[in-house]
């Protein structure tokens, strides 16, 4: 239906839409309580085990510079693989797997805070939504910078 390079997972953090390349997404799971690890910052609320793999939970709201909120029905973990890292990205909701035409990507708005702008490759208009494209290595880099 669409090429691997073009498939993106569309999800929402706060009231903004983000997209991750589907290649770095392993699975989507519903929210469940993570097991807290003593001595870690709040951005890392704990660990999860999914299919025998230990994932470190990342509160994307905090990483992206928003205030954290209590989990809701639509709250999801995006199980993210990048190199040897296994992260469970806590997002407000996952919308869809979509195909994005990257030729339509626009420059990152100057008004966007650095906390978000540093992770992004650019913004793309999908239907009537403005979608921020996340660059997985940059995400990791930002995470390491924070914790």
């Amino acid at each position: 239906m669409f090429d691997q390079a073009e498939a993106y997972l569309l999800f929402r953090v706060a009231d903004e839409q983000y997209a991750l390349p589907s290649g770095s997404v392993h699975e989507i799971v519903r929210w469940r309580a993570a097991v807290p690890v003593p001595g870690t910052p709040t951005m890392l609320p704990g660990i999860l085990v999914q299919r025998g793999v230990v994932y470190t939970v990342v509160d994307t709201r905090l990483l992206f510079g928003f205030a954290t909120t209590a989990p809701e029905r639509a709250t999801r973990y995006v199980l993210f693989h990048e190199d040897e890292h296994r992260l469970a990205l806590l997002v407000d909701t996952v919308l869809d797997l979509i195909a994005l035409d990257l030729t339509l990507s626009e420059a990152i708005p100057a008004t966007l805070p650095v906390a978000r702008a540093r992770l992004l490759r650019g913004v793309v208009r999908h239907t009537d939504l403005l979608v921020a494209l996340i660059e997985p290595p940059e995400l990791l880099a930002a995470l390491y910078a924070e914790v």
Partner: peptide, 9 residues
Amino acid sequence: PPVLRHALT
């Protein structure tokens, strides 16, 4: 996980 190792003091 490496992130946690990095984060823990």
